[in-house]
Amino acid sequence: MAEAYDSVSEPIPISLIAGRYLLFDVNVVTYLRRTHNICGSLIGGIPQAPQQNMFLGLPVELMPEEAALLVKKEIGYIVDDVAWHTQRFNTFEGEDRQKYLASLRSQGLKARKTAQFAARKRADHGLRKLVAKKAIESDSSEDESPDTPFDGTSSDALYDVDRPSSPAPSSIAFASSEPYALTPSTSYSPSSLPQNSSPAPDPPVGPGYALFELLQSRGYFMMPGLRFGCNFNVYPGDPLRFHAHFLANAYEFDEEIPLIDLIGGGRLGTSVKKGFVIGGEDLDAEAESGRKMRTFCIEWGGM
């Protein structure tokens, strides 16, 4: 896994599907999380446990702000998946097509091989355990069955005892070398992507982007803040390790903020032991040095 994580090359394709920015590769997700403070949120179901929604799996959906930041820093680029798919598959002929199918097949074979290996290992392990158990039993009651054969390959003995003649049906499956049918999450292999195509427009971001960028540059992790009624939940480190410290809400610099909103936000933040941060970008002061952000933290005093 480590080398896979290392092998992530920097301009990362971000799939834009139905207005969502999605990542399908776990290595990419890990990489972004470790090196760029970007975690997104998992939105896919887990095949092994399809009936719960507490824990979700791939793909990861990025907030528009996250996607915009990645694009801006040239860490990633947006790929309009639908357009790219149709374009590519309509012009998919001859050798390209063969190559693509071959690559799918090889992946399927690889998966099959891995599965087979794991299954064999499991079987071996089970058999060895069984043998050990039997050996102990025979030690304790040696006179009753003195000459049970126990070789290294005791599977014969096992089959002899249990079902003497029938060949195991599973062995056919084991023996088959058909590749697994794969459903690729993206319809292209990473190498086949347009490296500098920018058909997809930059993600639309609201006034929250400036605040997001500021906090991200300070090393904070951001998650969508719907749960606490704000733009972002701000974590001091990886959200898997820390509770959020702030609820961040962005406003435009000259926007009138209803007092009642500040009361609500401050009250909610304080009651969940977080600070309520509001921030805005002073567009007039931009000439001096890049972005000029002003942020304030509000706490409710009477609780």
Binding site: G225, L226, R227, F228, G229, C230, N231, D261, G264, G265, R267, L268, S271
Partner: peptide, 10 residues
């Protein structure tokens, strides 16, 4: 919705 959620939560 964030606004709604906030007030409802409070």
């Amino acid at each position: 919705w964030a606004w709604m959620n906030r007030i409802h939560r409070v």
